[in-house]
């Protein structure tokens, strides 16, 4: 049996077992892991290739559902699960932020103020991911360091049914992770959490609560003074 170190090659190895074609047999023997079959790397792919392409909602719902299930196997409670989803979102956010700014080209700006970055998230970022703006962006009146972005019907929650014993869970934690990554990237360290906050119109309304670290406000205060 030809043992190939690549996990991506197993499919083609299996196919050669059933219908052996010399073309594949040759490749598995000679190529090393570094190169794909076409010998094209990620650097040969244009970053705008997928800019306008869309993903079907059912495919997304399936993948997201699988991701939640996978995460659920490895955690102890709701909080742990949300943290895991947050981390998954964080990795997406880090990449998406750079991609978004790259696509803006010469007009790309780094946001240096709290309000600027929050608007960037609720407008540009939200539109790039979900093709709509976030529904509201508010400041928490009681706390100086807290802001809220709300989404009336987050697409990630559409096909997730939460069991009764886990009523605390909101899979919007994934989006919260994306938001957190964008804030961190711009040097606005914050904790972002997703909370279910239904109203009469929107039973699935989710609020992302953003709590900035104290040094962010300190810096902001200095900038206002100067």
């Amino acid at each position: 049996m030809n043992r190939d170190p690549s996990p991506f090659r197993t499919a083609s190895v299996a196919s050669t077992a059933t219908s052996p074609t010399p073309k594949y047999a040759n490749l598995t023997a000679s190529t090393n892991l570094r190169y794909s079959l076409t010998r094209k790397s990620i650097y040969d792919r244009h970053l705008n290739r997928t800019k306008t392409s869309e993903l079907s909602k059912s495919a997304f719902a399936f993948l997201f559902g699988e991701m939640v299930q996978y995460a659920q196997k490895k955690v102890y409670g709701v909080q742990d699960l949300e943290k895991k989803l947050n981390l998954h979102g964080y990795a997406v956010g880090q990449r998406f932020l750079e991609l978004l700014l790259w696509r803006e080209g010469r007009t790309a700006k780094r946001e240096t103020r709290i309000l600027g970055i929050l608007q960037f998230i609720s407008h540009q970022l939200y539109r790039a991911i979900f093709q709509k703006q976030a529904d509201t962006l508010e400041k928490v009146r009681e706390n100086e360091d807290e802001y809220m972005i709300s989404d009336n019907d987050p697409v990630v929650n559409t096909y997730i049914s939460v069991p009764k014993e886990m009523s605390q869970l909101n899979c919007g934690a994934f989006i919260a992770g994306i938001i957190e990554a964008v804030l961190d990237g711009h040097c606005f360290p914050a904790k972002v959490t997703a909370h279910t906050a239904p109203n009469e119109m929107w039973p699935g309304r989710t609020v992302f609560l953003i709590k900035f670290e104290p040094e962010v406000l300190e810096r902001e205060a200095l900038r206002v003074g100067s």
């Binding site: 650097y43 792919r45 970053l47």
Partner: peptide, 22 residues
């Protein structure tokens, strides 16, 4: 442009050294 492409690699994480020959 090249850095963004590197970042699109799911096996690359932020702050990892870039060792790609390409």
């Amino acid at each position: 442009d090249l850095y963004c492409k590197t970042l699109m690699n799911p096996f690359y994480e932020v702050n990892m050294a870039i060792r790609s020959q390409t």
